[in-house]
Design a protein around this nucleic acid. Sequence first.
RNA 1: GGCCCCAUCGUCUAGUCAGGUCCAGGACACCAGGUUUUCAUCCUGGGAACAGGGGUUCGAAUCCCCUUGGGGUCACCA
Length: 577
Amino acid sequence: MTTSAARTRVGRWRPGMIRPMCPTPGAEVVRTRFAPSPSGHLHVGGARTALFNWAFAKHHGGVFMLRIEDTDQRRSSEAAGLAFLADLAWLGIDWDEGPEFEGRGGGSAGPYFQSQRLDLYAREIERLIAGGHAYRAFETPDELEAKRQAARTANVPYRYDRAALAVSDRDAATWLSEGRPHVVRLRVPDDREIVVQDQVLGEVRIPPGELDDFVIRKADGFPTYHFAVVVDDEAMGVTHVLRAQEHLYNTPRHVLLQDALGYRRPVYGHLPLIFNADGSKMSKRDRDRALRAAVRDRGVTGARSIPAELFRTWLSENERQLDLDSAVALAEELGVELPEINVDDFRRAGYLPGVLVNYLSLLGWSPGGDIEKFSMSFLVERFSLDRIGRSNARFDREKLKAFNLDAIQGMGSGSFEAALRGHAAAFHPAFLARLDDAGFRLFATANHERCRTLEEPFRLCQFLVIADDAIVYGADRAVRKALGADPETLVRAAHDALASAASWDAESIAAALALCAAQHAEGKLGKVAQPIRVAVTGTTVSPPIDVTLVMLGRASTLARLRRFLEHLPAITQQATA
RNA sequence: GGCCCCAUCGUCUAGUCAGGUCCAGGACACCAGGUUUUCAUCCUGGGAACAGGGGUUCGAAUCCCCUUGGGGUCACCA
């Protein structure tokens, strides 16, 4: 494969030019698709691919489809499920055709599961065989592996040797009638250069002889990915294929197949890949890797949230993955932030769907100029293939977080509260049980200006859902500093002042504490607030002290202050140790 | 290793296709001050890049070539 010397982007269109696929307006409706294999939750990389296909279709008033590529019987039997449908819906990426899900999907080009389209593939394969474009091959996987091995040893590139073509018709017929397992291979012309016009990368040329006769039907009768994709894209009228660059080398195969089958050729665009901040591949194993590192780093030997047996095997077997709930629990226990890789992880971590979409669209696309914060409708309005970048991008969680903060700060108090309530219902029901409506509203206001994610308020305010007699006091330097020289006097004074406060609201509490500060701390509120904060939360961080106490309620506050005083000798000893 | 793709601050990028307005703009991160009862915010300022080498041109981040570096792919996975 070589790139043309002048990287002419033939077919790339610019404003004012006529689009190659739309010679006259309305002549052809743009149809794009996202075609994942059923593998549980949606990966951010997949989300970006889906987003671009969606945005492109919407920009042209076209149709965005979803198709499930479940032609791997082995993998599909693992019942990974279709959780990614909910992930797409959460992001606001709605599909016009595809599997039905909460009002989305349906359509006349279905079924949208490849495992239900086997008849079509069988018909098309027979057509290829009859036309001499494809042939049966009876080698076993072991035989092929031996040939590959031999090629490796000889240090030559492996290509299928077409041994099946040397088999006599009589033998082949006999084997076929015996029911001998076989695959079907495409007969790849080896005298033809293949040229692909990629809308992102430009012209890509593949010299003759680079591709071998690849398998299009497996021994189990299922089509391979290459075959199913090509047949379905034609049958479903797909006009544009946007997919990750890892598929670039598949495109010549698909072009060959289209030619052999007499199909039209969709427009292709290959998107740059997304990597972790450290340049490693984003993988679902990242989560377990981070947890193992933390466990080893701290010399932890067990976990409350995981059975000992499981913990041991998980720790020693690097391939082993914890289920999501266990991983989250362990992370909480260790105080580790889990690396997010699936869309669902980001939701759990408290990111707004619009922010994720915004950030994701910037990975490989740009509206140009200095614009980088925008809505989905802006994306639809401005999206175009000629603004897609060609080099791989790294996922920067800090920038995402900064965007999320900005979006949260920009929300009205009502919608922020609603969003926080939704997050609580999904992930922190204990807070809804603990706080009444007014309490939750206060919780929302107290956290609105200080949180970067919807998750942070719940972490910051753990003290709300811990029993009064279960507060654990920290023993670090921050706690020591917060307690100051004489916490006993201050906390005792605060207790008495708060006990006799006229009412339990922020104003009265602030007034009572200001008085304490005036009497015992030279008027410095911080000197009073910090010991109290430690006393009622166990930590040095919480919303402003008056709000913290209002949320907690008078009874809990006083009980915690008393308990703190009882435990004070042990606490100070521990903190100075 | 073969084949292919890519290359602007630490990161995402604008600028590249139509060479001059770019001693390169923005954002995140970072550093230094400031505001703040903790934390997070917030405000002000700062450092920070055209991978290297050859060409073409009056002129190159922009066009060409080479080198280097990064990535993808080489399955009866998708």
